[in-house]
Amino acid sequence: SLLIPWFKAATQLVATGVCDAETVDKCWELATGADPGQTPFRKLDKIGLVLARNILSMDPAAKDPASGLAKSVAMLNGYIDEGKTGIAAGEGFYKYESYDK
């Protein structure tokens, strides 16, 4: 009940062109004192973009192409289509060169 709204808010900021993922994460760090690994887009990379997309797609608002949520799902699909599915793939919103598969 806490994590999904956090992901929705973060992805919609990026998908609607308000700012980029790095800015969202940096603002979260500064505003909350969170560790850099505890930011929205680093967490999305950790859980995997396929799982995140599947969860966000279940919301009825994701069916309306004009909604911020539909734009978030489309953005995640773009990353997934490029093979950028998160830490396990070595890249999502960020690159993970030292990750051992």
Rank of each mutant, 00 (worst) to 15 (best):
L2M: 10
L2C: 08
I4N: 01
I4S: 06
P5W: 01
P5A: 03
P5K: 07
W6F: 14
F7M: 10
F7R: 11
K8R: 15
K8T: 10
A9W: 08
A9H: 06
A10K: 06
A10I: 05
A10F: 09
A10G: 06
A10Y: 02
Q12E: 15
Q12D: 07
Q12H: 02
L13V: 00
V14K: 01
T16W: 04
G17M: 04
G17E: 11
V18Q: 14
V18W: 05
C19L: 09
D20S: 04
A21S: 15
E22T: 14
T23N: 01
T23A: 04
V24Q: 02
V24D: 01
V24L: 04
D25P: 11
D25H: 10
C27I: 13
C27W: 13
E29L: 08
E29D: 07
E29W: 01
L30I: 15
A31V: 13
G33M: 11
G33S: 06
G33W: 03
G33T: 05
A34P: 08
D35F: 06
P36M: 02
Q38W: 08
T39I: 14
P40G: 10
F41A: 05
F41W: 14
F41Y: 15
F41D: 11
F41H: 07
R42G: 13
K43F: 13
K43P: 03
L44V: 09
D45A: 11
K46R: 14
I47V: 15
I47G: 02
L49D: 00
L49N: 03
L49P: 06
L49C: 08
V50C: 08
V50I: 14
L51R: 10
R53Q: 05
I55Q: 00
L56E: 01
L56Q: 04
S57F: 00
M58Y: 09
D59S: 03
D59Q: 02
D59P: 02
P60K: 00
P60N: 05
A61V: 02
A62N: 04
A62M: 05
K63D: 09
K63F: 03
D64S: 07
P65T: 12
A66H: 10
A66M: 09
S67C: 09
L69A: 07
A70S: 15
A70Q: 09
K71H: 08
K71S: 11
S72R: 00
S72C: 03
S72A: 15
V73T: 06
A74H: 08
A74K: 11
M75A: 09
M75C: 05
N77G: 12
N77A: 06
N77W: 01
G78V: 02
Y79F: 11
I80Q: 09
D81Q: 15
E82L: 08
G83Q: 04
T85C: 04
G86P: 07
G86I: 07
I87V: 15
I87E: 13
A88K: 15
A89N: 09
A89H: 11
G90S: 11
G90M: 05
G90K: 03
G90F: 04
E91W: 02
F93H: 04
F93A: 07
Y94L: 00
Y94W: 13
K95A: 14
Y96H: 05
Y96R: 03
E97P: 11
E97K: 13
Y99S: 04
D100W: 09
K101Y: 12
K101H: 11
K101I: 02
